[in-house]
């Protein structure tokens, strides 16, 4: 009887363990649309932070959800993915916002020169500051 109890509790533990492991393995990606942005700032300020001190900006912004406001310099679709470029006041560097698949459907509503606010995950700075999985917030 005691032996049976041990087996049953061991089995229950095993099932719970497997379930937790399975849940962890299939942990979903962050859904940017549902999450609140960690920081909200202008396109010019975001670029300035990266160009003055990239290491600090990396620590502050990478993998965080960032809401950025700016003027649309370009909106295009490449390989079925929408890309919105924001003006920063700098001739060469911009904020490159790669839209999610769902948001790409709304790319036609974006006009060059309009004010826009987007949020997305910051992955770093090359020539431009790159945000991925962006959604439009206004």
């Amino acid at each position: 009887m005691k032996f049976k109890k041990i087996i049953i509790s061991a089995l229950i533990l095993l099932i719970i363990g497997l379930f937790v492991a399975y849940k962890m393995y299939n942990k979903p990606h962050v859904n940017v649309a549902d999450e609140k942005a960690t920081v909200s700032l202008s396109a010019a300020k975001l670029l300035q932070d990266f160009s003055t001190d990239e290491a600090t900006a990396n620590a502050d912004y990478l993998e965080k959800i960032i809401q950025v406001k700016g003027i649309v310099a370009e909106a295009k679709v490449e390989n079925n993915k929408g890309i919105v470029t924001l003006e920063t006041g700098d001739d060469f560097a911009t904020i490159l916002c790669h839209l999610t698949v769902e948001e790409t459907k709304n790319i036609n509503t974006i006009k060059v020169g309009q004010n826009i606010s987007l949020k997305g995950i910051c992955t770093g700075f090359l020539m431009d500051v790159v945000l991925v999985k962006c959604v439009i917030t206004n």
Binding site: Y25, N26, K27, P28, H29, L62, E63, T123, V130, V132
Partner: peptide
């Protein structure tokens, strides 16, 4: 960090 995987 721009590499996107199927699983988080």
């Amino acid at each position: 960090k721009s590499f996107m995987f199927e699983k988080a």
